[in-house]
Design a protein around this nucleic acid. Structure first.
Length: 530
RNA sequence: GAGCCUGUAGCUCAGUGGUAGAGCAUUCGACUUUUAAUCGAAUGGCCGUGGGUUCGACCCCCACCGGGCUCACCA
């Protein structure tokens, strides 16, 4: 076991602090490898919190490797043996599902018809989601583990400590549940439903429980092993910790009580709970809780439409134990923080303290950074009304001749995101004011002049000749001051009060398209007048 | 009822014992045949309140006030 030096012990980065706790746990148990776990409930399709949990756990795992050099695994554990509690409203074939309420998800037909069970379908979605980010993990199915007998020894142990476990959980329950509670949930031998019934008899020697079907009155003796029964949630978690010897698991603060109780149960089983971290939940823009029905959350898909995955990781990295508002405006900031961290990493004497190091698993890609910040890029996209990456690149090169997609792959991606951001959030809010009579004449003149060509105008490049053309048109009409002519162009054509040098804009936007832009604005004016 | 987070510039937020920070906003300036992504500068804080620890507290401890969330059925 590697003992931390003073330098590493003073790490200010939380993944290393967590990794240190894991290292101490292993040292105490004389273990030679670490097991990290993340869990998924049956109701959950993967969402932004799923990403956060797996990313954060992966960072702790990576830090653990750095710290100790010991091997480790990350188990993504799906609670797919849980009973279907209610029919989700976002799936097809809901009537069909009604008949399977209460049965383990892996024994409910897939309403989408693409997998052998609903559980398998959700598992596939989860794996595809995790794979899309390139997470290194092993998938585990609760149903498989139960059926394969991987929990059998632990389940018998639970049976032996049945009363003790009941005593731990019972005080936390309401009067109704208190009467019937058992950590053992036998599967009904005929219907397959996960039964929440009083356990009348516990036979430790044979590994069975006896219970009565409330509907038929028939008594059953069911084995707790081999997938004939499963455990109630908190006991299930504890049993899994014990059976697999899980070393690390983080969870949201909504599970604080569960962590407490499961830890008590695992100790009743004679084992030690893993190192646990409780993270804060996300709030919306107004500090309110995020609920799917209100739709005030921000989805992974939304985030990744407007900024790179690294920025989402950056957001998740910072202070997991503090409540953060998760809404649209945090995206550009997260992207810029990431870019700044990449830049800072180059000359850093303590890379472990830098989020970018963690985000990239300690191996930075070539040319990871961007010479231009995302905020600036968004601003630029807005100012020039960029509707294509090529147009944005044109202006970037004017500012930074050496920049190219090849020399800065991140910038190339950011450009695409900035165009999307402008398209969806900036462009729709533009206010195009109608042109006055004077301005209409001048705009017609401008369109006609553009059609005639720029060859007669002075200047070295196309942009400069176009600029002189625009200027000449303005002078032919009675604008006072001439600035009013340019104000007209921005306000009438681009829907904003300020804008780029217009010749450069036309050169990049295209002469023909600019003419269309002018004709469109004039047509809008006609409609308003009519 | 139990627990967790939070209060720092106008706004959004960094900052865990050693001279209060960033972005945005505001104002001024530079560049500009009108402008502009840009660059420079300025303005702006009893760090929620009151105690305590310390040579020294935004930071650690206690109390209070304000804002918010979670759990008490299931997972």
């Amino acid at each position: 076991m590697v003992i931390m030096t003073e330098q590493t012990a003073s790490q200010v980065s939380w993944p290393f602090r967590e990794a240190q706790r894991v290292a101490e746990r292993l040292q105490a148990k004389a273990k030679k490898s670490a097991l990290f776990e993340t869990g998924y409930g049956p109701s959950g399709l993967p969402h932004i919190g799923t990403f956060g949990e797996v990313a954060r756990t992966s960072w702790v795992r990576r830090a653990f490797t750095e710290l100790t050099g010991l091997p480790s695994r990350l188990l993504a554990f799906s609670d797919d043996m849980d009973g279907l509690r209610k029919v989700p409203d976002n799936v097809p074939n809901r009537d069909m599902l009604k008949e399977f309420i209460g049965r383990p998800l892996t024994r409910v037909p897939d309403p989408f018809g693409t997998h052998e069970s609903f559980g398998a379908h959700n598992n596939a979605r989860l794996r595809a989601f995790l794979d899309a980010f390139g997470f290194d993990y092993e998938f585990a199915s609760s149903s498989d583990y139960y059926a394969a007998g991987k929990f059998d020894a632990a389940l018998r142990h639970v049976l032996a400590r049945h009363e003790e476990i009941v005593q731990i959980i019972r005080p936390t329950l309401g009067p109704e549940r208190r009467a019937s509670y058992s950590p053992i949930l036998p599967l009904h031998p005929r219907t397959g439903v996960v039964m929440q019934v009083p356990i009348e008899q516990v036979d430790v020697e044979h590994g069975t429980v006896t219970w009565t079907d409330p509907d038929s009155g028939v008594r059953f003796e069911t084995a707790v092993t081999g997938g004939a029964a499963k455990l109630q949630w908190k006991a299930d978690w504890a049993m899994r910790w014990a059976a697999l010897d899980v070393d690390y698991e983080m969870s949201g603060k909504d599970l604080i009580d569960s962590v407490k109780l499961s830890s008590a149960i695992v100790q009743a089983l004679g084992a030690e709970p893993p190192v646990c971290l409780t993270y804060e939940l996300f709030l919306d823009e107004h500090g309110q809780k995020i609920s799917k029905s209100k739709g005030n959350g921000l989805s992974v898909e939304q985030w990744l439409t407007y900024a790179p995955p690294e920025s989402l990781a950056q957001f998740m990295y910072h202070a997991p134990q503090r409540a953060k508002r998760l809404f649209f405006d945090v995206i550009p900031r997260a992207a810029d923080e990431y870019i700044a961290n990449v830049a800072a990493l180059a000359g850093s004497d303590d890379p472990h303290a830098n989020p970018a190091w963690h985000i990239h698993g300690g191996v930075m890609p070539e040319q990871a950074g961007s010479p231009i910040g995302f905020g600036m890029l968004l601003n630029l996209a807005s100012v020039i009304n960029a509707d294509s990456a090529a147009m944005l690149w044109g202006f970037i090169r004017a500012y930074m001749p050496d920049a190219s997609p090849e020399s800065s792959p991140l910038l190339a991606r950011l450009v695409e995101y900035a165009v999307a951001y402008n398209r969806d959030f900036v462009a729709p809010k533009k206010h195009f004011r109608p042109a006055s009579a004077l301005e209409r004449d001048a705009l017609r003149d401008l369109a006609a002049s553009l059609r005639d060509g720029v060859d007669s105008y002075p200047g070295e490049g196309l942009a400069e000749r176009l600029q002189n053309l625009v200027y000449a048109v303005g002078k032919r009409h009675a604008f006072t001051p001439l600035k009013a002519w340019f104000d007209c162009l921005y306000q009438v054509l681009l829907g904003q009060t300020e804008g780029p040098r217009f010749g450069g804009f036309i050169a990049l936007y295209g002469v023909a398209r600019t003419v269309e832009l002018i004709e469109g604005a004039l047509a809008r004016g006609d409609m308003a007048a009519a």
